[in-house]
Design a protein around this nucleic acid. Structure first.
Length: 298
DNA sequence: ACCCAGGGTCGTC
DNA sequence: GACGACCCTGGG
């Protein structure tokens, strides 16, 4: 066991976002796009992101964010990027609401959703772990990975753990991963980590690639990344809003609302894909997220 | 105790 | 292109 890096006495920063109608912490953090945000005893959300630890508090119409960041990063800059604050969600919601009443209802329900821009590497591994798995267990696995292989940040006398870098995660053997509870995903995470580690510029190249199809093609080469996981990665870390990840819940809601097949298992994935592309166009990913959250929670 | 499902993918036919 | 197998955990 090697010694672990511990960060403490990092300078606390804060940032207030005024008058946001389209920023509801519960919607953002519980719509299934992220696994490292948790409600604290006051009902605020605390999350570990690549750059540090943040606490998001709702105060009337304002959002107050405090946190400690690594590498002397600026909280305003980090939040603008991570929370997609330069994007006008009021406008997007208006546009989507006009498409049909189903979408309008789902947006009324999850009005405060924003699509996060999460770290690409972390999102790849996290969604490989998500395969045929449930959210509490996914969160548990990622937390344990971070605790053992990531860096420790101490803030307000509590310990937080950053998601391991590719070099840090590469220290884990397949057996280590199995013992952490990854199940059959152990080998997939191990192999994908190796590929990314051996291909120094791959992640950076994918970050700047504009074509959704080119990025998808590349992601599909990783063990454990199929069409659904690839779409999630692109939506939740690369802001590709034109994708439409189809899982059991999305299949369910699309069948209930549009297709109305008696046996939802029989619904063709291609059929849903075409329907989404046709109806939601370049905002399919956002539509998917409102519908997913609505169907799961309501 | 038993069964089922969960933000699917992979190998095989 | 269909079909079963796959770790593990929480809930009925």
């Amino acid at each position: 066991m090697s010694e672990k890096l511990v960060y403490k006495d990092l300078k606390e920063q804060s940032y207030i976002i005024k008058n946001t109608k389209s920023f509801e912490p519960k919607h953002i953090f519980e719509c299934g796009q992220c696994f490292r945000w948790n409600k604290d005893e006051n009902g605020d959300y605390i999350g570990v992101i690549k750059d540090g630890v943040l606490k998001v508090k709702k105060q009337g119409n304002d959002i107050v964010i405090t946190g400690v960041l690594l590498d002397n990063e600026n909280i305003e800059k980090v939040c603008n990027r991570y929370f997609d604050l330069n994007n006008d969600y009021d406008k997007i919601k208006l546009q989507l609401s006009k498409i049909d009443d189903n979408l309008k209802n789902s947006i009324n329900y999850g009005y405060g959703i924003r699509i996060l821009k999460q770290d690409l590497w972390e999102t790849i591994i996290s969604f490989i772990i998500s395969a045929n798995n449930n959210i509490p267990r996914i969160k548990g696995i990622i937390e344990r990975l971070s605790k053992i292989y990531g860096k420790t940040i101490i803030w307000n006398n509590k310990e937080y753990y950053t998601f391991p870098s590719k070099e840090e995660l590469a220290k884990a053997t397949i057996q280590d991963l199995r013992e952490l509870g990854l199940g059959f995903r152990d080998k997939r995470v191990y192999e994908t980590t190796k590929i990314i580690l051996d291909n120094k510029t791959l992640i950076e190249e994918l970050e700047i690639e504009e074509s959704t199809d080119v990025v998808r093609e590349n992601l599909l080469q990783f063990p454990g990344v199929g069409p659904k996981v690839a779409d999630c990665i692109m939506l939740f870390s690369l802001k590709k809003f034109d994708v439409f990840p189809i899982d059991v819940w999305v299949r369910r809601v699309m069948n209930d609302l549009y297709i109305k097949e008696d046996d939802e298992e029989k619904v063709n994935k291609k059929q849903i894909e075409n329907l989404a592309k046709e109806r939601y166009k370049e905002l399919a990913g956002l539509a998917q997220q409102y519908l997913f959250y609505w169907r799961r929670e309501a």
